[in-house]
């Protein structure tokens, strides 16, 4: 337990001094501001554009839902990409350089490394996500007051859960290959596979990738919470299994 606390403290120091924290905070703050801005500015930019032949685009006035649509799109794409890039080296860099050897020979358990890294990355991700959500919510409320959000908790929870899944995936890839590229490629490979699987209609409902982009339909009440329960469970189970597998593989690994 003592070594868990010590190592987690080290993880936060590392995030601070290697600019991980600053980058995450800045990017997610930016996404939080950008989403309502885009929702507001896009219709104005488009309306009045003459496509020729007398067809003029008339865009409807933006609503709070447009702002949240931008939020999900931005966090689901740019946000996830930033998350992947900032945490791609979380375990790979240590294995690559051999910085864990001294600490492990001091009697620190190997699973401590994995759990501590997952915890500290999760805290950073959660904080940045909450920052983004709060900022976006504040702007949205300011411009489109008293908008109704259905299933708000589950809708916002699901994209967070997908982020957790990505962190577990990056750790697993790092443990498996021991370098940055292994970690990145594992993560991208899984995302591409899940996206391809999404072409099959009967898979869509159970595919974790649905959590990354599809929860607007929850917020605007097109779908019900029950539609997303199975995939939420599947994604959680997958994240936990990835962590367990990481520990098992790491315990057998020669370093």
């Amino acid at each position: 337990m003592k070594s868990f606390v010590a190592f987690t403290k080290k993880e936060f120091t590392e995030s601070l001094r290697t600019y991980r924290l600053v980058v995450l905070a800045a990017v997610f703050l930016l996404l939080g501001v950008m989403s309502p801005l885009f929702a507001k500015i896009l219709p104005e930019l488009l309306s009045g554009v003459d496509l020729g032949g007398g067809i003029v685009i008339t865009a409807p006035d933006p609503t709070a839902m447009d702002s949240w649509a931008q939020f999900f799109k931005n966090v689901g794409q740019m946000g996830m990409l930033t998350l992947i890039i900032t945490f791609s080296g979380i375990i790979a860099n240590e294995l690559n350089r051999g910085t864990l050897i001294i600490l492990l020979t001091k009697g620190m358990k190997r699973h401590t490394v994995i759990l501590s890294k997952f915890l500290s990355a999760s805290v950073l991700w959660t904080a940045s996500y909450l920052l983004c959500l709060t900022v976006c919510y504040a702007y949205t409320e300011y411009f489109w007051p008293a908008s109704i959000l259905s299933n708000a908790f589950l809708a916002f929870f699901s994209i967070w859960l997908f982020g957790e899944f990505l962190i577990a995936l990056l750790i697993f890839g790092g443990i498996l290959f021991g370098n940055l590229y292994g970690s990145l490629l594992t993560c991208l490979g899984v995302i591409v596979t899940l996206s391809l699987l999404n072409i099959l209609p009967y898979v869509q409902k159970y595919n974790p990738i649905a959590l990354a982009g599809g929860t607007l339909s929850l917020l605007n009440a097109q779908k019900e919470a029950a539609d997303f329960i199975p995939v939420t469970i599947i994604c959680s189970v997958m994240a936990v299994s990835l962590l367990v597998m990481s520990i098992v593989v790491f315990n057998k690994k020669q370093i």
Binding site: T18, R20, V23, T82, I85, T86, S88, G89
Partner: peptide
């Protein structure tokens, strides 16, 4: 972002 995350 790229610089701080992987270029540094």
């Amino acid at each position: 972002v790229l610089y701080f995350a992987i270029g540094r």
